[in-house]
């Protein structure tokens, strides 16, 4: 089935203010940068964004924060962002911080039809407040519920016209689980190839999880912490 849309405008059609979005990426690595730029242009507001991080001040989800388009962030780590801090401390922005593994698994569960699961992460901490606790094999676990989204927006290295996706290195991160958990999943890719060109043995995300795919116009791929050694 052909999932190709002609550009980012067409890909993001139907996203409205007040919706819940999942956005792949870890820090600035593997984020759907073309789609984020388009969300800024669309001026959609009151978004709930599920994403491991919130970008930096002038890149990634930081761009949506600058325009005050986000009502609530669901993330595991949100440092390195002054505007985020200002909005959070002033109460303009709701923030739900959840352990990274629980965030990943809640997205996976959402896509896999599992409404909730027990995990030891966060037991005995404020993350566990109000959650059911049950002991398995002598160890207490807390009940975490699945996450889904109106739209999931992911970024892949290569994709084909069927929506099959291949990720590169650590730009994979949350993208595969979020692709599963979106009611509509949009994939922006660096290389878009005809069906049959990707080896079916090496597909990371099967096309069944992707409804729309397009080739991103340009990828800046900013590095957040450039760290090198000397020769």
């Amino acid at each position: 089935m052909n999932k190709v849309v002609k550009n980012v405008e067409e890909a993001l059609t139907g996203i409205e203010s007040g919706m819940t979005l999942m956005l792949g990426g870890f820090g600035l690595c593997g984020i759907p940068e073309n789609s984020i730029a388009q969300l800024v242009k669309m001026k959609v507001k009151d978004l709930t964004c599920i994403s491991n991080n919130a970008g930096v001040d002038d890149f990634g989800l930081g761009l949506l924060l600058q325009e005050k388009q986000i009502k609530k962030m669901i993330s595991s780590y949100v440092g390195e962002n002054a505007e985020f801090e200002r909005q959070m401390l002033s109460g303009e922005l709701e923030v739900d911080l959840i352990p990274q593994g629980s965030l990943a698994e809640r997205c996976r569960a959402g896509g896999a039809g599992i409404p909730a699961f027990f995990t030891p992460a966060g037991y005995g901490t404020e993350v566990a407040e109000g959650k059911e606790v049950r002991v398995f094999n002598g160890k207490p676990h807390i009940l975490e519920s699945a996450l889904t989204a109106d739209f999931a927006i992911v970024k892949a290295w290569k994709g084909d016209t069927e929506g099959n996706l291949v990720f590169k290195a650590t730009a994979c991160n949350f993208n595969p689980m979020m692709a599963m958990a979106g009611k509509i999943t949009i994939a922006e890719v660096e290389e878009l190839v005809p069906a049959g060109e990707l080896d079916p043995n090496f597909i990371h995300t099967p096309g069944i999880f992707v409804q729309r795919i397009f080739k991103g116009e340009k990828f800046e791929k900013r590095i957040e912490q450039r760290t090198v050694r000397t020769k």
Partner: peptide
């Protein structure tokens, strides 16, 4: 508060 990242897991 910056978040717990993966520390709790």
């Amino acid at each position: 508060v910056k978040g717990m990242g993966g520390a709790m897991d």
